[in-house]
Design a protein around this nucleic acid. Structure first.
Lengths: 261, 261
DNA sequence: ACTAAAGTTCCATTTAACGGAACTTTTTCG
DNA sequence: CGAAAAAGTTCCGTTAAATGGAACTTTAGT
């Protein structure tokens, strides 16, 4: 086991609720000996991966990581483009928009655009939610074949809410519907009272796949407004799909069922 | 020498002009054996520090680094506060604003707010400029003693433009003026035709220091507008300085000399 | 299909990482 | 203020990983 493993584990200790770490944090979080934690933090600081806060004792991510991390968005130009679309739609309609990526069976928020409304959905970047039980997740899973989806869940899954899929068959049915309609929708799944519309996109040149999502309180959004959200999001997504020649993109297909849910 | 050194060196290879690297890139950039470069990149990818672009061969920063890097500005909450002030002033007057930090004799951009004007100053995050020859740099150097500044430049420096300080004495004179006036100003230094106003701030609790800067085309900005920029920026900076109890903050002091340059 | 370039794997050698314990510093609280 | 606890650092021999060279495999160009 390389020291890189430990270093990466240290980086994973940081979160929106933990902006810095100490030797004892590592001991309890990672179960490593004090001696290791002490040397590791110092070594990472000496190499410029971490910085000490003020004089000493507390370590936080370094400027180097901030810079390199910043490049991620540009390197993955799909994210940048998708983020622009979601930002535009979010600005236009005032509801929270974000884009996410899938890592295995989890969905991770990458960028977010907070809405303007008093009652708004708040998501924070870096949060992880289960793929099968979210519109963003199903928008991305829909890009896989049914067999690939089954392979992702060899042991099945447990639905976290009433409206989430309960069985693999149910999930596959909803993925088929997502492919047909060109968008995925959730209601009361991850968060009660919240509805979300998501569309998946993929760059064949890089293999990157992202989900564009608009999330809003179910109670205050009229059917017409929901339709407008779907159309705006689909329009922007379709433009990107055309630009990057995404062959697995599912175009919007509004049948009667979707216009009045 | 630890593998962490090599890993950090790899991260330093990324820049705004190099979004991904290959084995041969590392061989030429870092002079390491092919075998090492190959294993190092794979190890870093396996640990989640890098990602392969599409199928393989090209490596770029990972989502993990993007997330941890994102935390940098929150961990260094001074950056966040300063960014809010610069963003507000930038929105208000339409010119480009950014905040930077000093690393030794270099100034590094951390966040940026592009202006709205057709003729606007464009700076990209992560760019490095010499501290002595920029308003942001002098705003931060002014927080040091003259002896500390001399120690930073044991071999002196070479002015990159007509209006930059040419000697250590000239630099110290301008730093003294910066302390007296409460802001630093540059004109035609890093970029011709560009004028910039900067103010330095420091958090005694963490030791973090940042420079707030508004940058604009010299030709199109009237003296009154320049004064308004100085006042807005100084007002916001003073609020933060009071909040964090920055004892080395230099308050705005507009004498006749500054009001008509 | 052939060749050159790029990337990977294998090997013995060298070097760094490891965990435990002793030691030092900082913090807590009577 | 001073003792005790907590937190952090350093030292040690052992163990495991990193190294560079060369052979080997894959990819790209003509």
């Amino acid at each position: 086991m390389s020291i890189l493993t430990a270093a990466a584990d240290v980086l994973r200790c940081f979160s929106s609720t933990r902006h810095d770490v100490t030797v004892t944090d590592l001991v309890s979080l990672l179960g490593m000996p004090k001696s290791n934690a002490s040397r590791l933090l110092r070594a990472m600081r000496d190499e410029g991966l971490l910085e000490t806060v003020g004089d000493s004792k507390r370590y936080r991510p370094s400027l180097l990581l901030a810079q390199v991390g910043q490049l991620y968005r540009f390197a993955a130009s799909l994210i940048d483009r998708a983020d622009a679309v979601v930002g535009r739609v979010s600005d236009q309609i005032g509801h929270t928009g974000y884009i996410s990526v899938r890592r295995g069976t989890e969905i991770i928020g990458v960028t977010a655009h907070p809405g303007r409304h008093a009652l708004r959905v708040v998501t924070s970047i870096g949060d992880r939610i289960p793929a099968f039980a979210s519109s963003t997740g199903r928008a991305l899973l829909a890009r896989l074949s049914d067999d690939e989806v089954r392979a992702l869940y060899p042991d099945g899954f447990t639905a976290p809410s009433e409206t989430a899929p309960r069985t693999m068959d149910e999930l596959l049915t909803r993925l088929a519907e997502t492919r047909r309609a060109g968008f995925a929708e959730s209601h009361d799944e991850a968060v009660r009272g919240v509805r979300a519309i998501s569309i998946g996109l993929g760059d064949p040149a890089t293999g990157d796949e992202v989900a564009l999502c608009i999330s809003f309180p179910a109670a205050t959004v009229e059917p017409g407004e929901r339709l407008a959200i779907i159309k705006s999001l689909a329009e922007g997504a379709a433009e990107i799909a055309a630009l990057i020649q995404d062959k697995r993109f599912f175009p919007l297909n509004l049948s009667n069922a979707e216009t009045a849910p």
